[in-house]
């Protein structure tokens, strides 16, 4: 692939100088070494150093560069430039539903607040043994598809329930983390965790529309985890 020009429409807003946000039309030349959207963003920034976005690992494990790409949340570093149709501008916006700090950078306070609210740490009241706590490979397998979350917020910010109640609904990422600890055979706080989640807002705002599953860049399934939490609650109540 020789070099080609990509056209972008990018959401721009610098509260220091702009009265309100606007969409900027900008284009950039990319060559065969630029495979991912992040490569193009870095080139754009070389052209215009005022373009602000987060990035770090550029390999999809740190979760910094989640943005809204052509209407769908995703990581810039995992989005292939070849996936964009020729001729149409690529529309980039900050993640929806969170306050914008500047350009593509959103304020994630609310997202992390919800993550913290589920007590995201192992709770075990027994005195720690000398060696590791034992766990069978099968029990360990229960954590697969849960612990890999990178907290990029693609899921929660694509969830209408989180848009309407970001202060009350834990959101898919937080609920996935909650189930990660419920599912861990070493954790002893299952009941407390279920008590905390049994709430019309914290858990039951999930209406199973599965936007979270659709956008997760790591291929995780928060909806399934939420379903398992509900199933445990039913098992406990019946």
């Amino acid at each position: 692939m020789a070099s080609r020009t990509l056209h972008f429409k990018i959401y721009r807003y610098d509260p220091d100088k702009d009265r309100k946000p606007y969409m900027q039309d900008i284009s950039v030349e990319v060559d065969e070494n630029d495979r991912k959207l992040l490569d193009a963003l870095v080139k754009l920034k070389a052209k215009d150093d005022s373009l602000a976005f987060r990035r770090s690992c550029r390999e999809g494990v740190c979760g910094s560069d989640a943005i809204n790409i052509n209407g769908k949340n995703g990581l810039a570093c995992l989005t292939d430039l070849s996936s964009f149709p020729e001729g149409k501008p690529i529309v980039l916006r900050p993640l929806p539903g969170l306050p914008v700090i500047r350009d593509l950078i959103v304020d994630m306070t609310q997202f992390f607040k919800q993550y913290h609210s589920i007590k995201p740490y192992l709770i075990n009241h027994d005195p720690p043994p000398e060696r590791e706590r034992l766990q069978s490979p099968k029990d360990r397998e229960e954590l697969d598809g849960l612990y890999e979350c990178i907290l990029c917020a693609c899921c929660s910010t694509s969830c209408p329930s989180f848009w309407w109640n970001p202060d009350k609904f834990v959101g898919p990422a937080g609920l996935l983390a909650a189930y990660r600890f419920i599912a861990d055979t070493r954790d002893q706080a299952t009941n407390e965790r279920l008590d905390d989640l049994e709430d019309p807002y914290r858990l039951f705002r999930c209406h199973t529309i599965m936007n979270c599953v659709d956008v997760c860049p790591k291929g995780l399934n928060p909806t399934r985890a939420i379903g398992k939490i509900k199933a445990l609650m039913v098992a406990r109540a019946i």
Partner: peptide, 19 residues
């Protein structure tokens, strides 16, 4: 490493349940 395990790190396991 044992400390981390106690804090919840999801190490892979051997059949006997050890790391």
């Amino acid at each position: 490493v044992i400390e981390l395990e106690h804090w919840g790190m999801p190490f892979d396991r051997l059949d006997n349940g050890r790391i």
